[in-house]
Amino acid sequence: MAKRPKPDQIVAKLLQADVLISQGQSVTAAIRAIGGPEATYYRWRKDYGGLSSSLVRRIKDLETVNARLREAIADLTPDKLILQEAARGNV
């Protein structure tokens, strides 16, 4: 099973494809040169099209932090509900 490329590698491949296309190669030939299926290229173009690799890295870091915060909230929510019930005197 092949490893998925990291976002900054995807941006580099998209830039490489742009260079090849600007040099006169067809889109299909440029996609073949960077490797991967045509559908993957267009999905990458849609997701990472106008981004720089540093911006993509920053977005991925923020997504990681966001996931960690969501997990922390999910862990604390039951505790909060128990405390609210206890404060109302229902326990």
Results as ranks from 00 to 15, higher is better:
Glu71Pro: 04
Gly50Met: 09
Thr77Ala: 09
Ile10Tyr: 02
Arg4Gln: 04
Asp18Ile: 02
Ser22Cys: 08
Trp44Cys: 03
Val11Met: 01
Tyr41Glu: 00
Ala74Glu: 10
Lys3Trp: 15
Ala33Tyr: 03
Leu20Gln: 01
Ala67Glu: 04
Ile59Phe: 11
Leu76Thr: 03
Trp44Arg: 01
Tyr48Gly: 01
Met1Cys: 04
Glu38Met: 07
Arg4Lys: 15
Arg58Ile: 05
Ser53Thr: 13
Ala72Thr: 03
Val19His: 09
Asp79His: 15
Leu76Ala: 09
Ser52Phe: 09
Leu15Lys: 14
Val19Asp: 07
Lys13Arg: 14
Met1Gly: 11
Gly50Thr: 07
Leu55Thr: 04
Asn66His: 14
Val19Gln: 13
Ile73Pro: 02
Asp75Gly: 06
Ile31Gly: 03
Gln23Ile: 08
Thr40Gln: 11
Thr77Trp: 14
Gly89Val: 09
Ala29Pro: 03
Leu51Asn: 01
Asp75Val: 07
Val56Leu: 01
Ile82Glu: 11
Lys6Met: 10
Gly49Gln: 04
Leu55Gly: 03
Leu14Asn: 00
Pro37Gly: 09
Leu69Pro: 01
Lys3Arg: 15
Ile31Trp: 00
Gln84Tyr: 11
Pro5Asn: 08
Ser52Ile: 05
Arg58Val: 10
Val65Tyr: 13
Leu81Thr: 05
Ser53Gly: 10
Pro37Asn: 15
Leu62Asp: 06
Arg68Asn: 04
Ile59Arg: 05
Thr28Ser: 12
Leu55Arg: 03
Ser26Trp: 05
Gly36Trp: 02
Gln16Asp: 00
Asp79Thr: 07
Leu81Ser: 11
Ile10Phe: 05
Gln25Trp: 12
Ala67Leu: 08
Ala33Glu: 02
Leu15Ile: 12
Arg68Glu: 02
Trp44Met: 05
Leu83Met: 11
Thr64Val: 06
Glu63Pro: 03
Gln16Lys: 07
Asp75Ala: 12
Asp61Ile: 08
Tyr41Lys: 02
Ile73Lys: 14
Thr64Phe: 13
Glu38Arg: 06
Lys13Ala: 12
Ala72His: 10
Glu63Gln: 11
Asp61Trp: 13
Lys80Val: 14
Ile10Asn: 02
Glu38Cys: 07
Arg4Phe: 08
Ser26Ala: 11
Ala67Cys: 09
Ser52Cys: 09
Asp79Asn: 12
Lys60Val: 13
Glu71Met: 07
Thr28Met: 09
Ala86Phe: 14
Lys6Cys: 07
Val27Ile: 13
Leu55His: 06
Ile82Gln: 05
Asp79Leu: 14
Val65Leu: 11
Ile21Thr: 01
Lys80Phe: 13
Arg70Gln: 09
Gly36Cys: 09
Ser26Arg: 09
Ala33Cys: 08
Asp75Thr: 08
Ala30Tyr: 02
Asp61Leu: 14
Ala74Trp: 15
Lys6Pro: 01
Asp79Pro: 04
Glu63Thr: 10
Ala29Val: 08
Leu69Glu: 06
Lys60Asp: 02
Leu51Asp: 00
Trp44Gln: 00
Pro5Val: 02
Ala86Lys: 05
Ala39Pro: 01
Ala33Asn: 03
Arg57Asn: 14
Val27Pro: 00
Arg68Val: 07
Arg57Phe: 08
Arg58Leu: 12
Ala2Ser: 12
Pro7Ala: 13
Thr77Lys: 14
Leu81Met: 14
Val11Ile: 15
Arg70Asn: 10
Ser26Met: 05
Asn66Arg: 14
Lys80Gln: 10
Ile10Val: 15
Leu15Ala: 08
Arg70Phe: 14
Arg45Gln: 08
Lys13Pro: 02
Ile21His: 02
Asp75Phe: 11
